[in-house]
Design a protein around this nucleic acid. Structure first.
Length: 673
RNA sequence: GGCGGUGUAGCUCAGUUGGCAGAGCAGCGGAAUCAUAAUCCGCGGGUCGGGGGUUCAAGUCCCUCCGCCGCUACCA
């Protein structure tokens, strides 16, 4: 027996989780962990939400709530979705826990005293409007090399030159648009270069790791490791535990990795064994296995081992089975373009197992894998037809021909011996595959065994022998039931919910890997009633999943503000054409209490608009007023008058409506973006 | 720009150290009727992105071109 410490990447709590997360870091880990438990290995599975960093503070501003409320909300949603998907964490913590703060600060001080962390002064742009320092990409401006206005703090979008943010001409804050000024600041850097000599041979020794991980590390190593800043000017996060460091927090990637350890500590505290975590993190025999997506390779294969090595005595990763990405309809999943499929939405309509199966058998193990609803339906139906139907036909037959009692096998012929041998070899091959993180191949293998079950059933023809040779019939059903139970065991890491149902029908609950291939269901046992295990899906089934359904982001905003609407892509936004205009004429519309007919000067033309402004503005207030007009809105007739666009205004939801007004220097027809 | 990945049957994907191109689904033909219109048997189908090279032998190694994707370090 070995000791395993399995982790999945800490999900970032600035939004709910989607299929890509599940397929990359959680489902493969869960399958691995369930399998190890069935082999009676000593295994714990650790995770938790990563709750710090700038994107969370930005999200909080967008939602009009505090960062703490953001992470509370998404921690809830993420942990609930994973639980409903059967991801069997032993502990799912969060980096906002006090224990995590204490531990992270301890680690910081430890490395600081050893000289692995150093303090440096530097200049950085500071935005007075936003009251924050601006990391490279939050600064825009004019490129000093080529004069393009599309430069960012790190690189010019047009000429590609590498830039220092401070060299930008006409620097602009990308958040609020105001002009930031350089200001002195102090940051702490992790001296990764100090670990390079140790790291190279350590990586070399792991030539059994997946090639994507090794290649990625090789690239980094060739560039050389540099000092890396591990602090930020922010008030959200774990404070730097040094005097004169107010306003400085430890940066996410540094502290989040330590979340694996603090989550383990929490687990053992809950178990009443506060020292128990040490045997997982300090015993060199422990196999630390970290499931991640490919975007996390550098942190887990280079930075985390360096930090742990710097601390001394901690175990280092035994393997890092990084997965590639899941694409949807051939495109990268993008939350901003709205192409993500949220776990919450899926679970509102469908059970977890079909998705677990579909993602396991087409996992992004070696390269990006594509997900489509058509493919999902095909996999779901395959599972229902081949596996679900095999179990169903077997149990139904037992009820029909043997009153639901497992019959006595009379003869064990060639076919039966071959069947049992076949189960045993499937079990052993799958074990080999699963131990080597070949989840997809293992899943294919167990489906093969289910096909073999159908073949055995067909060739035995119990529906005929029921009338001609009771013994043969009983034998066929007896062995089909044994196979059903073995399939229940071998499928359990992949589709645990379905296997539990089968267990209830067979009166069998053992989840020991070695039991597969045995004759576990004795003759004479009364079987449960057969039920449909897996529903088939028809074309177009996914249409029940529409955006208006329980989308987690659409939860009601605070203080009576409307909820934030569905995300639109930049391209979609760019379709919107807004321009400045000046109101030239205002007329009443006959029969309308609230509407005005406006004639607006758009610079190169004038156009007629209908706007519901009468309750809020008088004609005199409107004449010659500068307004913002959405000009490419589909024209519509209101009370018989054509409106060619929309006047933009803010609405406080309490009856107050206020026209947007371009600045005093703007001219009619000016574009707005 | 640099680095890395990827391109195999209509679709989704496997193809260890070079050694006769594979699976599932879809399609076509047949068998069967216990079962969720499920199952089983058989068949067809690929210039392995293009071109060049090394080799007795290349999907696999080398060069080059094309397409797509990712990373490029105070982005998480």
């Amino acid at each position: 027996m070995s000791r395993y410490l399995v982790t999945s990447a800490l999900p970032y709590a600035n939004g709910p989780s989607h299929l890509g997360h599940l397929a990359g870091a959680y489902l493969p880990a869960d399958i691995y962990v369930r399998f190890l438990r069935m082999c009676e290995e000593d295994v714990i599975y650790i995770c938790g939400t990563d709750e710090h960093g700038v994107p969370i503070t930005i999200k909080a501003e967008q939602m009009g709530i505090t960062p703490g409320e953001v992470v509370d909300r998404f921690h809830e949603i993420i942990s609930r979705d994973f639980e409903r998907f059967g991801i069997s964490f032993d502990n799912f913590s969060r980096t906002e826990k006090p224990e995590h703060y204490r531990f992270t600060q301890e680690v910081f001080l430890n490395l600081f005293k050893k000289g692995y962390i150093v303090e440096k002064s530097m200049k950085q742009f500071y935005c007075d409007e936003c009251s924050r320092f601006l990391p490279d990409r939050y600064v825009g401006g004019t490129c000093p090399e080529c004069g393009s206005a599309n430069a960012r703090g790190d690189q010019c979008e047009d000429c590609g030159s590498w830039l220092d943010a401070l060299d930008l001409l006409k620097a602009v804050c990308e958040i609020c648009g105001s002009s930031p000024a350089p200001r002195d600041t102090t940051h702490w850097f992790l001296r990764l270069n100090a670990f390079q000599e140790w790291l190279e041979p350590w990586l070399e020794a792991h030539d059994n790791w997946k090639s994507n991980v090794l290649n990625y590390c090789r690239g980094w190593r060739n560039e050389g490791l540099r000092e890396r800043a591990i602090t930020r000017d922010l008030d959200w996060g774990v404070p730097v535990p040094l005097p004169d460091a107010s306003g400085k927090v430890l940066y996410v990637w540094f502290e989040a990795l330590l979340g694996y350890i603090s989550s383990t500590k929490e687990l053992f505290t809950k178990r009443g064994d506060p020292e128990g975590w040490k045997k997982y993190w300090f015993d060199p025999e422990t196999r630390l296995v970290q499931f991640i997506g490919k975007d996390n390779i550098v942190f887990h294969a280079i930075i985390e081992p360096s930090v742990l090595h710097g601390l001394g005595s901690y175990v280092l990763p035994w393997n890092i089975p990084a997965n590639e990405y899941l694409t949807i309809n051939g495109e990268k999943i993008s939350t901003s373009r709205g192409t993500a499929i949220w776990l919450t939405d899926y679970l509102a309509h469908f059970p977890p197992d079909p998705m677990r199966y579909a993602l396991a058998i087409n996992a992004p193990e070696n390269r990006d894998a594509d997900f489509t609803w058509d493919e999902f339906r095909s996999k779901n139906n395959e599972l229902a037809d081949v596996f679900g139907n095999f179990v169903n036909r077997t149990i139904k037959f037992a009820h029909k021909a043997f009153e639901g009692v497992v019959p006595e096998p009379a003869v064990e012929g060639q076919a039966e011996r071959e069947l049992m041998a076949s189960i045993a070899s499937a079990r052993d091959e799958m074990e080999e595959l699963l131990r080597n993180f070949k989840t997809k191949a293992a899943c294919l293998r167990v489906m093969d065994l289910a096909r073999e079950g159908n073949r055995y059933f067909d060739q035995s023809q119990p529906w005929k022998t029921a009338h001609t040779d009771r013994n043969k019939c009983a034998t066929a059903i007896y062995y089909s039931i044994q196979l059903a139970d073995s399939l229940r065991i071998l499928f359990a890491p992949f589709i645990p919910f379905t296997c539990e149902k089968i267990g209830r029908m067979l009166g069998s609950s053992s989840l020991l890997w070695k039991d597969a291939g045995g004759e576990n269901i004795p003759s004479g046992r009364k079987l449960g009633e057969p039920e449909i295990l897996l529903e088939k899906l028809r074309k177009g089934f996914e249409e029940v999943m529409q955006p208006e359904d329980s989308r987690p982001e659409s939860t009601d905003g605070e203080a009576g503000k409307p909820a934030i609407k569905e995300t639109v892509s930049f391209d979609e936004f760019m379709k919107i054409d807004m321009r400045a205009g000046v109101v030239k004429e205002v007329d009443d519309i006959e029969g309308a209490d609230k509407l005005f007919r406006l004639i607006v000067d758009m610079g190169d033309h004038s156009r007629q608009l209908v706007a519901g402004m009468k309750p809020f503005y008088s004609k005199e207030e409107l004449i010659n007023r500068k307004i913002v007009v959405l000009v490419n809105l589909q024209p519509v007739k209101i009370m018989g008058v054509v409106s060619n666009g929309m006047v933009l205004a803010s609405d406080d939801g309490k009856g107050g409506v206020y026209l947007l007004q371009p600045g005093s220097d703007s001219c009619p027809g000016d574009g707005i973006h």
